[in-house]
Simulated assay, not measured.
Amino acid sequence: MISRPIAKALERHKTLRGLYEPRDKRFVAKAKNKESHCGYQKWHRDVDLEVMMWLREHEKATPEQFMSKLREIYGREDTLERFPNGFGPAT
C-alpha cells in the first residue's frame, strides 16, 4: 500500500516524514487473485495519485488521519473487489 511514489511524498510531508517506508510491512493488502494485483495498473496509479494529492492538501495530517484515508480508499466497493479483506500487517 505504501508504494515508492507514496513513500517519496511521505518523506516530503511535514508531520508524517520518517514514519513509513516503501512496501511497509505494516500495511499489506492481499489481492483476491493474481489479476487483481498484477503489475502497476491504472487503478494503482490512480490510488497513488489520490494519496499523494491528499498528502499535499493535508500538510499537517496526523498518522491517524493518514490511516483513515487509506482505510477509506481500501473500503471502497471497487477496491474491495480486488482486496476483499482490506489491508493489515503482513503475516
Rank of each mutant, 00 (worst) to 15 (best):
K32L: 10
K34G: 10
L49T: 13
A31S: 14
G18D: 03
E77G: 09
D24E: 12
E72V: 10
P84Y: 06
E77M: 12
P84H: 04
R12G: 02
D78A: 08
F66N: 01
L10H: 01
P89I: 08
H58F: 03
I73L: 11
R71L: 11
K8P: 01
A90G: 07
V47L: 13
Q65C: 04
R45C: 05
V51P: 00
L19D: 02
R26T: 09
P5I: 07
R17V: 04
I6G: 00
P5M: 06
R12D: 02
K42M: 11
M1D: 06
G88P: 09
W43Y: 13
T91D: 15
G18T: 05
L19M: 14
Q41E: 10
G39F: 15
E64H: 10
M53R: 15
G88T: 05
L19Q: 09
R76M: 13
N85V: 07
H13P: 01
W54Q: 05
F87I: 06
F83L: 08
T62M: 07
K69Q: 12
L49S: 13
R76Q: 15
M1N: 04
K8D: 00
G18Q: 05
E81F: 13
D24W: 01
E72L: 13
R23L: 12
E50H: 06
A61M: 06
F87K: 05
S3G: 03
P22K: 03
L16W: 04
